[in-house]
């Protein structure tokens, strides 16, 4: 075991890791997914829009190769870091699925078994999917030290309020959250492209 404090080296590694998330592409694709889930839910009354998110993953990979890598380069992190991130990612995916299942189940419970539910209950249920989506956002913020995901979580929670108060379709809470996420991602991408011109 090393006798030397590794805090300085850990900081270097953390900074290098954060660089790969500075391009805003993940925000754009996550925002677009959330936005489209909302649009599907509002227009079709279905939650099938949730299959959109996995479809965007290859697009994100291609966008990273075309936009980010020529600008900030390529880095392969240690096996220890990759294992740690894979476990976190798996946890996030499971939590996301669980969130969706709970949200959808509660929504259908509220809307289809109305005899068992009070009006207040069904109103609260409508806001739950958005509120539950805020939980993975907080976890992403903590996992990747990306504080902006705290803001996304706050936006999702705030967007759930009018849905609960006015008893709107739950999809309406996703739309502003998704738009906000995309807008921030777009801003980050522009800053990233300006900061790291190709062939500097």
């Amino acid at each position: 075991m090393n006798r030397v404090s590794t805090s300085g080296l850990e900081q270097i590694e953390k900074q290098a890791y954060q660089t790969i998330w500075e391009d805003g592409l993940i925000d754009i694709f996550v925002g677009l997914s959330v936005f489209l889930i909302g649009v599907f839910w509002v227009s079709q009354g279905s939650v099938y829009g949730s299959v959109i998110a996995p479809i965007f993953v290859p697009f994100w990979v291609v966008a990273r190769k075309r936009i980010s890598e020529p600008r900030v380069g390529v880095v392969n992190f240690s096996a220890e870091r990759i294992n740690k991130e894979n476990k976190k990612l798996l946890g996030l995916v499971l939590l996301g699925v669980l969130t969706l299942v709970i949200g959808v189940a509660w929504y259908f419970f509220g809307s289809h078994i109305s005899s068992l539910a009070t009006p207040q209950h069904t109103n609260l249920v409508a806001g739950l999917p958005a509120a539950l989506l805020a939980i993975p956002s907080v976890i992403v913020a903590l996992t990747f030290s990306a504080k902006r995901f705290f803001v996304y979580a706050a936006v999702m929670l705030m967007a759930a309020v009018p849905v609960i108060v006015f008893d709107l379709n739950p999809g309406w809470a996703f739309i502003p959250g998704g738009v906000w996420c995309m807008a921030v991602g777009g801003g980050l991408l522009m800053r990233f492209v300006r900061k790291h011109p190709i062939g500097r």
Binding site: E13, T19, V72, G73, V75, N76
Partner: peptide, 18 residues
């Protein structure tokens, strides 16, 4: 060398930007 110590490998561009 500190930067390369904390990662598995990195390309020229990455070292330059960091």
């Amino acid at each position: 060398i500190s930067l390369l110590f904390v990662v598995e490998s990195a390309d020229f561009v990455f070292l330059k930007t960091q």
